[in-house]
Nucleic acid binder design. Structure first.
Lengths: 204, 204
DNA sequence: ACCTGAACACCGTTCAAGT
DNA sequence: ACCTGAACACCGTTCAAGT
């Protein structure tokens, strides 16, 4: 009888996962582990065991550890996109909206430092561009591009190439976030300074 | 007789190293490995074997792998400091000097991507601040602070808190360098754009 | 179609022993 | 004071076998 084997206590049973579910569960558990204990403690064995699944079940869904990390990174870009878009709309756009986006971006990085590191980590550039990851990263970046175009249309920002402006703003905010994660600067206050200065440099 | 034991071909003999030399050789070999093959290929066993020394000889000089990486990072900051200082003086200071510093900084990161990642990697913030590393990082940052103070004295830059300005400039250049390493932007051209825009935002 | 269990080749680190 | 060699506990990955 297929119901007679008792699941180990405190663990989900392997047969709870049907098509697509284990894949999602693996990414979720990896994100949870990274957030709680850091990248160094992420092991495929640990992820599998915590889900009540064998250490190698993962290989049905991901080519290797780096592929799992790619999915983790993609998930991070989706959350970052949601946070920055919410920040923009919560202010009704405008310069306040752009400033709120920067603050939200930095806050995401500071509250999810390990996840953020995976999103921009070395593990990704050693492999061919992962389509899901590339799409998630592009979508997150597009929120900033759209914001800049809206500001230009409203004559609130200098009419340089919006892509170039977006990359410049992104680099600044990314640098602040990274140095903040490293504990080298107070990222929140430095982002405030940037929000005061950046419009001066980019206004028409 | 101490000269009777033949060294293995192609390897340096262990007794070639006297006090302090093996420590330096280990860091050099680690830097070489990282530059040539990436962080993922850096193993303590490999470093030792390539120096003709046992896999565990390293533990006389470094507490663990992270301590070795800390020394590698410190060495990176020393080289970065030299490069940016040379760039500043080669232009005789001024705004051209600051722009040259930014270009030199980005170029260092792009030509030594793995080394640069170690300098700002996750391995460092899980441990108590390494004194040699902290000193090297501070010295590299101080070059930028001194440049900004010189610009302010010459009335070429707005008289904000120089430390805050330096952190802001650093974050921008660091972000450009990081995104460049990730292959997400063309760092050299973005740095050119920043060199045109940043003075506008920070001039008096 | 999806998962398991054993096995393989590695790796960081410890420690008693050597010189 | 510095280094070696064997050993330990881990890890990613492969693969034949199960259902």
């Amino acid at each position: 009888m297929h119901g007679s084997r008792r699941p180990r206590p405190g663990r989900k049973r392997a047969d709870r996962y049907h098509h697509g579910d284990l894949s999602r569960a693996l990414v979720q558990e990896a994100v949870r582990t990274i957030q709680a204990r850091g990248i160094a403690h992420l092991t495929l064995r640990g992820v599998g065991n915590r889900l009540g699944v064998s250490q190698t079940a993962l290989y049905r869904h991901f080519a290797d550890k780096d592929a799992l990390l790619g999915a983790v990174a993609a998930e991070g870009f989706r959350r970052l996109e949601a946070d920055t878009r919410d920040a923009w709309t919560s202010q009704g756009g405008g310069r306040e909206g752009l400033a709120a986006m920067g603050t939200a971006y930095v806050r995401f990085a500071l509250t999810h430092p390990s996840h953020y590191r995976v999103m921009f980590g070395a593990a990704l550039d050693e492999h061919p561009p992962h389509s899901e990851l590339a799409a998630a990263g592009t979508a997150a970046f597009q929120v900033l591009v759209d914001a800049i175009i809206a500001l230009q249309t409203a004559d609130l920002m200098r009419r340089d190439d919006p892509l170039l402006l977006a990359r410049y703003v992104w680099a600044t905010v990314h640098g602040i976030a990274m140095l903040g994660i490293d504990g080298r600067v107070d990222a929140e206050s430095l982002m405030s300074f940037a929000n005061e200065r950046m419009p001066t440099g980019t206004a028409p």
